[in-house]
Each structure stands twice: as structure tokens, then as C-alpha cells.
């Protein structure tokens, strides 16, 4: 059976589990919705000057996406440890497939989250997007890096104390370059440009993070 099918089995397992339990998925979307409501209530559609809107809204969008992701994505491995299923997983499945499957699930979760948050942003904050293609490319490239890094770090913190604080603490400096590039690129996309430069950095980041996670998967997850 191919490696992809095995990773997919893990991803499908996570998806089914989360859909049946609902807590994590609801929490992520609820967080995104709350933050969105808060921002739009605070700023409103006309609370910002026209020239300030693209950079500020881009930054706000990614801050919301990052923190919403930080409530949901680290569950990947943390949940396995909390329910005690980590042993069964480690006993039967190589770490790389587990990591790949969970990354895939987190990636899908992130994309679903953006698919809900971005229209919300457009409606509530009068956010006009110049280039939808560019925005989609940023979300696809940026979300992947975010999913890879969060999932990998989730494996690291799964068996440590104070996991949630720890996760944000160790994730923040690592995803900072990704967030900064994504925010700048989103700003350009809002203005109708295609942010080739930013997307190049995002893809490079994705590649570096994936390779590092692949090499270190067994170290992070197995005993």
C-alpha cells in the first residue's frame, strides 16, 4: 500500500474523529468568528482611512487566522496523548505517516477556516480584494507552511507540561517569517498586484519546513 494511502488513512481518521467529536472544529470556527466579530465591531466598515485599509486588514486577517489555528491545529498530537491512543499509534504506524496524515488534516482545516473567514472579512469590513487568484495562492502556500510547523510542534509539546502556552511560545518565532511574508503578500493582493516575491518566500518556507519535519518526525514523536 502506498505511502500516500497510509498518510491518508491517518488524515481520514482524524477527520472522522473530529467530525464526530466536534469540539475542536467548533472551537476553531467559533474563535475565528468571535475575533472577526470583535474586529468588525471595533473598526466597522468605515472605521479606517481608505489608504490604511489594505495593510491593516491584511495584518488583522492573518492574526485571526494564526490564533484560530493555534487553538485547533496543536490538537493533532495533543489529543492522542490525552486520550492515551498515542501508544497504539506509535506501536503500529511509522511517525512519518502519522505526521503526514495529521499535517494534511490540519491543512484542510486551515483552508476551510480561511474559506469562512475571508468572506466574513469582505462582508463585515468592506474588504475589497484586487486579485482573488493571488489571495488563493497565498492561502494555499501560507496555510501549508503553517500546517506543517504547527503539526510538527504539536508532536513536540504533546508530552510536555503546559502544552497550550508552550505551543504558542515555541511556534511564534518560527512562524513569524511566514506570517510577515503572508501579511505583505496579502496586502499586495488586496491592491490587485500578484505578490510573486512573497509567494516565493512562502513556498521556500514550505519546502524547508516539510523537509525538516520529515527528517525529525521520528525523533519528535517516537520514543
Amino acid at each position: 500500500m502506498s505511502a500516500l494511502a497510509r498518510a491518508w488513512a491517518v488524515c481520514a481518521k482524524d477527520a472522522t474523529q473530529e467530525l464526530r467529536r466536534k469540539v475542536a472544529i467548533v472551537a476553531v470556527f467559533f474563535f475565528a468568528a468571535t475575533a472577526l466579530a470583535l474586529v468588525s465591531f471595533g473598526i466597522g466598515p468605515f472605521g479606517l482611512r481608505a489608504e490604511d485599509r489594505p495593510p491593516l486588514l491584511s495584518a488583522l486577517l492573518w492574526i485571526i487566522l494564526f490564533f484560530a489555528a493555534a487553538t485547533g491545529l496543536p490538537r493533532a498530537f495533543v489529543a492522542e496523548e490525552e486520550t492515551g491512543t498515542g501508544l497504539a499509534l506509535r506501536k503500529t504506524i511509522p511517525a512519518v505517516y502519522v505526521l503526514a496524515g495529521k499535517t494534511l488534516f490540519n491543512y484542510i482545516l486551515f483552508l476551510a477556516m480561511t474559506a469562512v473567514t475571508i468572506p466574513g472579512f469582505m462582508i463585515l469590513l468592506e474588504w475589497r480584494i484586487g486579485s482573488f487568484g493571488a489571495l488563493a495562492a497565498i492561502m494555499v502556500a501560507g496555510g501549508f507552511g503553517l500546517a506543517v510547523v504547527s503539526t510538527f510542534l504539536s508532536a513536540l509539546v504533546a508530552r510536555a507540561g503546559q502544552r497550550n502556552v508552550l505551543f504558542v511560545l515555541i511556534a511564534f518565532p518560527l512562524v513569524m517569517p511566514l506570517l510577515v511574508s503572508a501579511i505583505q503578500a496579502t496586502n499586495q493582493a488586496t491592491n490587485g498586484q500578484f505578490p510573486l516575491d512573497g509567494i516565493r518566500i512562502l513556498i521556500a518556507y514550505d519546502g524547508a519546513a516539510s523537509c525538516a519535519a520529515y527528517m525529525l518526525a521520528a525523533v519528535a514523536w517516537e520514543d
Binding site: 510547523v149 513536540l156 525523533v219
Partner: peptide
């Protein structure tokens, strides 16, 4: 694992900043 993972992603700080 964290030190090495961070070591790989650290250069992006200097590229992006």
C-alpha cells in the same frame, strides 16, 4: 528536534526582516 527544526527555519527571519 526543536533546535534543529528552528535551525532550518531561522534563515527565513533574516531573509524576510
Amino acid at each position: 528536534a526543536y533546535a534543529l527544526f528552528a535551525g532550518v527555519l531561522m534563515p527565513f527571519l533574516t531573509i524576510v526582516a
